Amino acid sequence: LEELEQFARTFKQRRIKLGFTQGDVGLAMGKLYGNDFSQTTISRFEALNLSFKNMCKLKPLLEKWLNDAE
């Protein structure tokens, strides 16, 4: 759980530094990986307001997006 919290904080910082909005991330993930995510989902991930199971599902996709975006 602590690792997920740390990743969520780091993800938000890096996303902002790269100049992407939460909506940009959701749209890009849909185009790149075929998984559409709303701005609300990205927001809830960053705020740790998703279930642990959903956080675990999203983490690898967000890590991949972040690596591809950098």
Rank of each mutant, 00 (worst) to 15 (best):
Leu1Ser: 11
Glu2Leu: 08
Glu2Ala: 05
Glu2Met: 15
Glu3Ile: 08
Glu3Ser: 10
Glu3Trp: 03
Leu4Met: 11
Glu5Lys: 15
Glu5Gly: 11
Glu5Ser: 08
Gln6Thr: 13
Gln6Asp: 13
Gln6Trp: 07
Gln6His: 03
Phe7Val: 03
Ala8Glu: 01
Ala8Gln: 01
Ala8Lys: 01
Thr10Met: 13
Thr10Phe: 13
Lys12Gln: 15
Gln13Pro: 03
Gln13Leu: 11
Gln13Trp: 05
Arg14Gly: 12
Ile16Trp: 04
Leu18Glu: 03
Leu18His: 10
Leu18Gly: 05
Gly19Asp: 05
Gly19Val: 00
Gly19Gln: 02
Gly19Ile: 01
Thr21Asp: 05
Thr21Asn: 12
Gln22Asn: 02
Gln22Ala: 13
Gln22Tyr: 02
Gln22Phe: 07
Gly23Asn: 07
Gly23His: 09
Asp24Gln: 13
Asp24Thr: 04
Gly26Ser: 10
Gly26Val: 12
Leu27Gln: 14
Leu27Arg: 13
Leu27Gly: 10
Ala28Met: 10
Ala28Ile: 05
Met29Pro: 01
Met29Ile: 04
Gly30Thr: 14
Gly30Ala: 11
Lys31Glu: 09
Leu32Met: 12
Leu32Asp: 14
Tyr33Pro: 09
Tyr33Leu: 12
Tyr33Ser: 11
Gly34Asn: 09
Gly34Lys: 06
Asn35Ala: 12
Asn35Met: 10
Asn35Glu: 15
Asp36Leu: 10
Asp36Trp: 10
Asp36Pro: 06
Asp36Val: 10
Asp36Met: 05
Ser38Trp: 05
Ser38Phe: 04
Thr40Cys: 11
Thr40Val: 15
Thr40Met: 09
Thr41Phe: 06
Thr41Gly: 04
Thr41His: 14
Thr41Glu: 11
Ile42Glu: 01
Ile42Pro: 01
Ile42Leu: 08
Ser43Arg: 12
Arg44Ser: 15
Arg44His: 05
Phe45Ile: 02
Phe45Leu: 07
Phe45Pro: 00
Phe45Tyr: 05
Phe45Ser: 00
Glu46Pro: 01
Ala47Asn: 12
Ala47Pro: 01
Leu48Gln: 13
Leu48Tyr: 03
Leu48Phe: 15
Asn49Thr: 14
Asn49Ile: 11
Asn49Cys: 14
Asn49Phe: 04
Leu50Asp: 07
Leu50Lys: 01
Leu50Gly: 06
Leu50Tyr: 05
Leu50His: 07
Ser51Ile: 01
Ser51Leu: 01
Phe52Asp: 09
Phe52Ser: 14
Lys53Cys: 07
Lys53Tyr: 07
Lys53Gly: 13
Asn54Pro: 03
Met55Cys: 02
Met55Trp: 03
Met55Val: 05
Cys56Ser: 11
Lys57Leu: 08
Lys57Trp: 09
Lys57Arg: 09
Lys57Glu: 10
Leu58Val: 13
Leu58Phe: 13
Leu58Asn: 04
Lys59Glu: 03
Lys59Pro: 01
Lys59Trp: 08
Pro60Trp: 03
Pro60Val: 11
Leu61Asn: 13
Leu62Phe: 09
Leu62Met: 14
Lys64Gly: 11
Lys64Asn: 04
Lys64Glu: 12
Leu66Ala: 13
Asp68Gln: 09
Asp68Pro: 03
Ala69Thr: 15
Glu70Lys: 06
Glu70Gly: 08
